[in-house]
Amino acid sequence: MANASSKRIASSNESALKNIQLGLLGVNLLAPLLRFLFSLVASRTFIPSKKIIALHLLSIAGTVFVWRWFVLIGTPKRDASGLKSGEDLSGGGVVELAWDLVYMTWICTLGSAILGDWVWWFYLLIPAFGAYKAFNLVRPLLGMFLPGIFGPKIPRDPNAPAQDAADEKVESRKQAKLRARMEKGDKRVQQVQTSRR
């Protein structure tokens, strides 16, 4: 069973690494071509501003770094005991955030070539999403120290209909039987009632 799972993860990782290589080459070759074609059709310049070039180079460097990291952790390794699949590249956590970086880089690169340089503003979604995840991680701790701000929200009006519905309790079978016995005058139930008081 474990060997089948390792083989599945290994084949998934190999295809993911191949796809990221093809994507890196495809996007970075297609973007200048599209930019050139749109500069002929529209009244845009072929060469973008220095800020956009620097941003593009930084994002490519980040994507290459992620690709090399994926190769390091995701390449299957063979040893005497058999095949070790490596880290699952379709998993969550940091790997998922790295994939988001790669995809957002490709979207911004192609989008800026087609639509214009304003598409690079979408790159701010990455730190915004990271901040959202970090806040959700820290929120329970903040709720302990600042319950009025970050704690659970309760209705302020105690006479609200939602509060009345929550106060009604459903009687279990055992409770219904005990109540019926007490109404009939069963002495066992009366003894339990007096011992609780």
Rank of each mutant, 00 (worst) to 15 (best):
I114Q: 09
V66T: 03
A131N: 03
A2L: 04
L24W: 02
D88W: 00
I53E: 09
I53H: 05
I154H: 15
K184M: 12
A54E: 06
V66L: 01
K169N: 13
I107N: 04
G130F: 09
T75K: 02
T109W: 11
A31Y: 11
N3C: 02
A113S: 12
L137H: 09
S59G: 09
A160H: 15
T63D: 09
G111D: 06
G86P: 05
H56R: 14
S6G: 01
P158E: 14
L34F: 08
A31H: 10
R196S: 11
G185F: 02
S5M: 03
F65E: 07
N136T: 07
L37I: 09
L37C: 09
L29D: 09
F46V: 13
P48M: 03
Q175L: 08
W118T: 14
K133G: 01
P152I: 09
L25N: 14
L124H: 12
D186V: 07
R68M: 01
V94S: 04
D167W: 15
R156K: 14
L25V: 15
A4F: 01
A61H: 00
K174H: 10
L137N: 06
R68L: 01
T63A: 10
D164S: 13
A10I: 02
M182T: 03
E168T: 12
S195Q: 13
S43H: 10
V189I: 06
L137R: 08
L58A: 13
L124I: 13
N3Q: 07
L83P: 00
A128C: 11
P76Q: 08
L34A: 10
N159D: 15
A166Y: 14
L58K: 06
A180H: 10
D117K: 02
